[in-house]
Nucleic acid binder design. Structure first.
Length: 348
DNA sequence: AATCCGTACAACCGCCTGGTT
DNA sequence: TAACCAGGCGGTTGTACGGAT
């Protein structure tokens, strides 16, 4: 005959949050921090699941959230970042201060997507609808996007951590108590460029020479695209992209939390490290700076960039890169945008 | 006044990942 | 190594609201 009433009493509430619930959640977090979300509802006197509490906090109650209308500048930023990152809302949100991924996602789905569609632009590909989608040029752009997407994901994670720290400090102002120590600079353990490279190492790690995997293993784990190039080419293009960005644009990876910056030679060293055959794990430790490579089995960055490893199966890299020239300015513009702290965008 | 429809957005759900035991 | 858990992410749903009919 069903469960006793005592069990029904324990059922968790769903649906819209009341003002009273918000106050309870706010008061508890200000007093204790959120700690374990699973145990929070009971401690805070809420009939909600921990997940619901976490979402309410991160999407609505957090003190550093900007609400209200999106500015034209924010709209442009979202559109451009979506062209670069796709539906990676958390990565996009990391570059829009004080906006949540949920808010951006909703704004995209309810407004921007429709607006682009009305303009005759495919909101998925960001190309005119009557254009052939699978041009070689578009494919090359997609390859570059793989690299940049992975890098941005790593950056986004760091931004999240930074935000968490600032949240704690904000709460601390209202309710002074000892703060937990800040986390160690994570770049020492996993610089973003290395995160990116690990992605590619993992896709190629099963092959004997560390560069050639099976055809099905060529894609980034985050990719939804099909590639026409082999793994060697992908590694080389990604390497070249990194070098190009570093040297041409005076770009350096930078930890937004701790201000750690890496110069071009350091990044280059990381890339060379990424080309190390899979069996060589003697430099798994990613602390900086990278040790110089003495092992002749290691593929040198310069060799790859110059195409001197073409006999391994890849097309001439520089010849291939010429095809990217037209898109380079476009990508440089995007990369400048996402790497600019102020996020000041040129007028469209 | 009642109903319909489109819009906006809060909230939920299922899946995935990384860490811990 | 496997199982478990916490937390994050993206897709989807539910609902309130306003304007049109």
């Amino acid at each position: 005959m069903g469960r006793p009433n005592s069990h029904a009493k324990e059922e968790l509430k769903k649906g819209p949050w009341t003002r009273e619930e918000d106050q309870k959640l706010l008061a508890y977090i200000e007093e204790h921090g959120h700690g374990s979300w699973r145990s929070l509802p009971a401690k805070a006197g809420l009939q909600r699941c921990g997940k619901s509490c976490r979402l309410r906090w991160t999407n609505y109650l957090r003190p550093d959230i900007k609400r209200g209308k999106f500015s034209p500048h924010e709209e442009k930023t979202i559109i451009r970042l979506h062209a670069l990152l796709g539906n990676r809302w958390s990565a996009i949100a990391a570059h829009l201060s004080k906006r949540t991924d949920n808010e951006i996602k909703n704004y995209w789905n309810t407004r921007l997507k429709k607006r682009l569609a009305r303009m005759g632009i495919d909101p998925t590909t960001h190309k005119p609808k009557n254009n052939p989608a699978q041009s070689r040029h578009a494919a090359n752009l997609s390859h570059m996007a793989q690299w940049e997407t992975a890098r941005l994901e790593a950056e986004a994670r760091l931004v999240r951590e930074s935000k968490l720290q600032s949240n704690l400090r904000l709460l601390h102002r209202f309710n002074p108590r000892p703060l937990p120590p800040p986390p160690p600079p994570r770049y020492l353990a996993a610089p973003p460029c290395l995160d990116v490279l690990k992605v590619w190492q993992q896709t190629s790690g099963s092959s004997p020479n560390g560069l050639f995997g099976s055809p099905g293993s060529l894609e980034s784990p985050t990719s939804t695209l099909n590639f026409s190039c082999n793994n060697y080419t992908m590694s080389a293009v990604n390497s070249l992209m990194a070098n190009d960005v570093v040297s041409t644009n005076n770009y350096s990876t930078c930890d937004p939390t701790y201000g750690t910056a890496y110069n071009a030679s350091e990044v280059k060293g990381k890339i060379e490290n990424s080309l190390r055959p899979a069996h060589d794990d003697s430099h798994e430790d990613s602390s900086l700076p990278c040790p110089p490579h003495q092992d002749s089995s290691i593929y040198r960055f310069d060799d790859v960039a110059s195409g001197s490893l073409n006999d391994l199966g890849g097309p001439g890299l520089f010849g291939m890169v010429e095809e990217f020239e037209d898109s380079r300015s476009y990508w440089n513009e995007l990369l400048n945008m996402v790497s600019s702290p102020a996020m000041e965008l040129p007028r469209l």
